[in-house]
């Protein structure tokens, strides 16, 4: 758990980068620090492991004031991932990954075991890559190594500064999914800096939206999209924020809430979609007019019902206006 208490950062010459920010990151949650460039998100992140000093207020980690802890010990207990992966060219992948365990004095055997376990987590062969050097790996592989390096000593807290920002969109998406999968297992308390709205919506349990060092809103992604607190938040997420919010919901959610339409076996031109699909992609599919009827099926291929633009619209209506769920006829 990380708590920010009126945390403020003032540079010489009275430039305030972070102004009295208050919020708490709950244990096991990913909180994304989001905002335009120069909003203070990276500064705020770097104040947690004291790469930046705290001018006023405080940051507590698991109830302990970060300033009361030994700086080196504090940093070794916090995983740190940066955009440019920060792998050391003079060290092999194994040496790079095991830096913090090495600093903490783990035995050779412990380090070896840990390395292979971590490599397994990201689906790379420890045997094959362990003795290689960073420049021999692709960008995506390097960034994965950067992530497991931060996880190496199993720190409770992780700081990630635009960790996937330098990757191309396809690989970025893959690594995001992979990381969410890992997070399900390891349940770290994570602060994650991003300037990419889609990434924030995808990764975050909660989003901290910052402007000029001030906290604009701290909420779950869907709350922020659906109920922006002020004009800045509204504008920041853009006119298509309703569509963006749909990516947070699956057909399953919609089915639980209002049910699906009945499907008609007589219609020949049909397409099938899995019930775990998110609604944003589903809506795109419907809008593309790819078929006359879109049938929803579960993982075993059982047909659950049909979905139409109408139903998605009703669901949105419910979500945004918080109106009681309409009941579809014939369900």
């Amino acid at each position: 758990m990380i708590t920010f208490d009126k945390t403020t950062k003032t540079y010489e010459g009275n430039v305030t980068a972070v102004k009295g920010v208050d919020f708490t990151v709950e244990k096991g949650e990913i909180v994304v620090l989001l905002g335009p460039s120069g909003c203070g998100k990276t500064t705020l992140l770097r104040m947690v492991n004291r790469l930046e000093s705290i001018s006023e207020g405080k940051i507590t980690i698991d109830g302990q004031d970060s300033m009361s802890l030994n700086q080196t010990a504090l940093r070794r207990k916090i995983g740190y991932v940066i955009q440019s992966n920060g792998l050391f060219p003079n060290m092999t992948i194994e040496e790079n990954t095991m830096i913090v365990p090495d600093l903490l004095g783990w035995s050779k055997k412990e380090k070896k075991e840990r390395f292979h376990k971590l490599m397994e987590m990201i689906g790379l062969s420890g045997e094959k890559f362990g003795k290689r050097y960073p420049h021999e790996l692709s960008g995506g592989q390097q960034q994965r190594i950067g992530v497991i390096r931060a996880l190496a000593a199993d720190p409770p807290v992780m700081l990630m500064d635009e960790p996937f920002g330098a990757l191309d969109p396809i690989i970025r998406e893959k690594i995001q999914d992979e990381f969410l999968q890992i997070q399900k297992e390891v349940k770290k308390t994570i602060l994650f800096v991003s300037h990419d709205i889609d990434e924030a919506i995808k990764m975050a349990d909660k989003i901290v939206l910052l402007r000029g060092g001030e906290l604009m809103q701290y909420d779950t992604p869907s709350e922020m999209l659906v109920r922006p607190k002020n004009e800045f938040v509204r504008e920041f997420f853009g006119k298509d924020r309703a569509i963006k919010s749909l990516s947070l919901h699956t057909i399953e959610d919609l089915r639980d809430m209002i049910g699906l339409a009945e499907f008609d076996d007589a219609i020949a031109d049909t397409k099938t979609i899995n019930v775990n699909h998110d609604l944003r992609n589903t809506l795109s599919m419907l809008l593309n007019q790819e078929a006359d009827q879109v049938i929803v099926s579960d993982d075993d291929g059982n047909k659950l019902g049909a979905i139409t633009i109408d139903i998605v619209q009703q669901y949105l209506h419910y979500e945004i206006k918080a109106k009681p769920a309409p009941v579809l006829e014939g369900v």
Binding site: N49, L51, R75, R76, I78, S84, G86, F88, I99, V100
Partner: peptide, 15 residues
């Protein structure tokens, strides 16, 4: 040496 490397090293708790 890339400034980011030093930053990463400091962030990981190297003296």
């Amino acid at each position: 040496i890339d400034e980011n490397l030093i930053d990463a090293a400091r962030g990981m708790g190297m003296k």
